[in-house]
């Protein structure tokens, strides 16, 4: 981590960049937050890069692109897909960013610690990149000590890591570690839901989506949700809604949100990570990704900055609407 700070200080000092977009130590070890650093002192004091730095910093580059001078941004391999996608959508300016591709050995999910009764972490070792990270050693504020296998507390997305290769970068630092599960793929859960009866699917999603409190955390964190004003805030549309008044509205919100990011969603999983209600929102995005892959050929948003997404392209031989539904029960 110190080498990241040193490099950032160098780039600040020689004027290559005007600021550094990185992760800042949080109140607790498990909640570092995205932050813009402007001085060497600040970097030394607060910069952090460890297993809890799951946050994808790409989206913050939208604002940073409009600032004077370059911004140094640290991007993990999976974050670079979002950055490319944002270039494609003219939301970030490549020349305004100095990208350090940082290695990734899998990121941690605090929720998994909570489920084990280890939510109140005081200190944790084994998660820094420099260390061996097969096992995380946790000490809680109550003095409990426990060793947990790293894979058991890893974020869901890391089990199905897209790649350890950065798609776009100016320089690379630190190594990565393979975290992908040997069995299954990211669509397993979607396929399991597809195999249920319509009643079961309805009940499942109702039980999940009804938890939504419309805090808009998913929308705020999502790099694809980059509208200046969301359609659900658009008073010219008669769709503006601030809160869930009834069962339908969270459905409408989440269906449309997933639809609007379809073909643009890189499957970074930030929506599920930040949801305070633990709604598995990525299952909606992945449903669209799976459908698009099956119907129109495999496509990974953000793997480059040009290829049009499946919803802004077509072929004359596309399957008819509803064609994919025959596979589904009910």
């Amino acid at each position: 981590m110190q080498e990241l700070i040193n490099r950032a200080k160098e780039l600040l000092a020689d004027g290559t960049v005007a600021r550094v977009l990185g992760w800042k130590k949080g109140d607790f070890v498990y909640n570092p937050e995205p932050h813009i650093f402007t001085s060497a002192e600040e970097l030394e004091k607060d910069f952090v890069y460890d297993g809890f730095c799951g946050a994808n910093l790409s989206k913050y580059m939208i604002r940073a692109s409009k600032m004077e001078g370059k911004t140094l941004v640290f991007l993990k391999p999976c974050d670079t897909f979002s950055f490319n996608q944002l270039i494609k959508e003219h939301q970030v300016v490549r020349e305004q960013a100095y990208i350090i591709g940082v290695g990734c050995k899998g990121k941690l999910d605090h929720r998994k610690f909570q489920e084990m009764g280890l939510g109140d972490i005081e200190s944790i070792t084994g998660i820094n990149l420099m260390d061996e990270c097969d096992v995380a050693k946790v000490t809680t504020i109550y003095g409990d000590k426990k060793e947990v296998p790293f894979a058991d507390v890893m974020l869901e997305r890391c089990h199905f890591c897209k790649t350890k290769d950065h798609q776009i970068f100016d320089e690379k630092m630190l190594g990565s570690k393979e975290t992908t599960d040997t069995e299954g793929d990211r669509f397993d859960e979607v396929r399991r839901i597809q195999a249920m009866s319509p009643e079961e699917r309805f009940a499942y999603f109702r039980s999940e989506l009804s938890k939504c409190i419309r805090c808009n955390a998913c929308r705020n964190v999502c790099p694809a949700c980059n509208c200046l004003h969301c359609v659900f805030d658009n008073t010219n549309y008669d769709t503006a809604q601030k809160a869930n008044a009834d069962s339908f509205e969270e459905n409408m919100f989440h269906i449309i949100r997933a639809y609007h990011v379809a073909g643009r969603c890189t499957d970074c999983g930030e929506c599920s990570r930040v949801c305070p209600q633990s709604i598995p929102l990525h299952l909606l995005n992945r449903k669209f990704i799976l459908d698009m892959d099956e119907l129109y050929g495999e496509f990974q948003a953000g793997s480059d900055t040009e290829t049009p997404g499946p919803l802004t392209a077509f072929t004359m031989e596309d399957p008819e609407a509803g064609a994919g539904l025959e596979r589904s029960r009910g």
């Binding site: 969301c230 359609v231 008669d238 802004t312």
Partner: peptide, 20 residues
């Protein structure tokens, strides 16, 4: 329809008209 934010509208067949 492609526009996610609803910035793009069509005169004579506007979003609000069709919604209404």
């Amino acid at each position: 329809v492609a526009c996610p934010s609803g910035a793009m509208n069509l005169k004579g067949f506007s979003n609000r008209q069709i919604m209404a």
